[in-house]
Simulated assay, not measured.
Amino acid sequence: MAEAPLPAIRSLPSWILGRAAARGRALVAEALAAQDMKMWHHVVLSAVRDLAPVAQADLGRGIGLDPKDLVGVLNDLQAAGLVVRAPDPRDRRKNAVSLTDEGARLLTRCEEAAREANDALLAPLSAAERDQFMALLTRISGTEGV
């Protein structure tokens, strides 16, 4: 049997991390799809829960989503009864976004599904290895202390 192509590339940590990240995203996306949820919709729901009531512009900046894309996601979430947009109490010229009770319930289910998907991703590791892996990933990702 022939050796896999690109051995120099495939041995790079960045390549391996990218493959692991792609597998993790796929597992989470599949788990969220079972809840009729997409990845960015889940991110927005989570951010709204953490920041609400939050102005749309602040929400978009906080999660790094282009304003046009954010409007589309919020339209979907509002149409599904998961968020509400109302005048911002701090600045009535802006819209503030908050979760509905149904949005909060769905977010809880999505968070559990995402945790289970991540558990599946890390299943080959022992508990101690998972802790070490997460500590190392945090150090190299530049998110330590964030």
Rank of each mutant, 00 (worst) to 15 (best):
M1A: 02
E3V: 03
E3L: 05
A4H: 05
P5F: 13
L6S: 09
A8T: 15
A8W: 14
R10S: 07
R10M: 06
R10N: 12
S11H: 11
P13I: 02
P13G: 07
S14V: 15
W15Q: 11
W15H: 14
I16P: 06
I16L: 12
I16M: 05
L17G: 14
A21C: 07
A22E: 09
G24Y: 01
L27I: 01
L27N: 01
V28W: 02
A29K: 05
E30C: 00
Q35L: 08
Q35M: 05
D36G: 11
V43N: 04
V43F: 02
V43S: 02
V44F: 05
L45H: 01
L45G: 10
S46K: 12
S46G: 13
S46P: 09
A47D: 07
V48A: 04
V48D: 08
R49C: 12
R49S: 14
V54S: 04
Q56P: 01
Q56V: 08
A57K: 11
L59Y: 01
G60S: 13
R61H: 03
R61M: 08
G62P: 00
G62A: 15
I63L: 03
G64D: 04
G64P: 00
D66H: 12
P67Q: 09
L70A: 01
V71L: 07
V71D: 07
V73Y: 10
L74T: 12
L74A: 06
N75C: 00
L77M: 08
L77R: 04
A79M: 09
A79C: 10
A80K: 15
A80N: 13
V83T: 11
R85V: 13
P87T: 14
P87M: 08
D91R: 12
D91A: 11
K94F: 04
A96E: 02
A96H: 08
V97C: 08
S98C: 10
S98G: 10
T100G: 04
E102C: 05
E102V: 08
A104F: 02
A104L: 07
A104H: 05
R105N: 04
R105P: 00
R105A: 12
R105W: 04
L107N: 00
L107M: 07
T108Y: 02
T108A: 14
C110I: 06
E112N: 06
A113G: 11
E116I: 14
E116M: 15
N118Y: 11
N118D: 09
N118W: 10
N118C: 14
D119F: 12
A123P: 07
A123G: 13
P124R: 14
L125R: 11
L125I: 12
L125K: 01
A128K: 15
D131S: 13
D131R: 14
D131C: 03
F133G: 01
M134C: 11
L137H: 03
L137Y: 04
T138F: 00
R139H: 13
I140Q: 06
S141N: 04
G142Y: 03
E144G: 07
V146T: 12
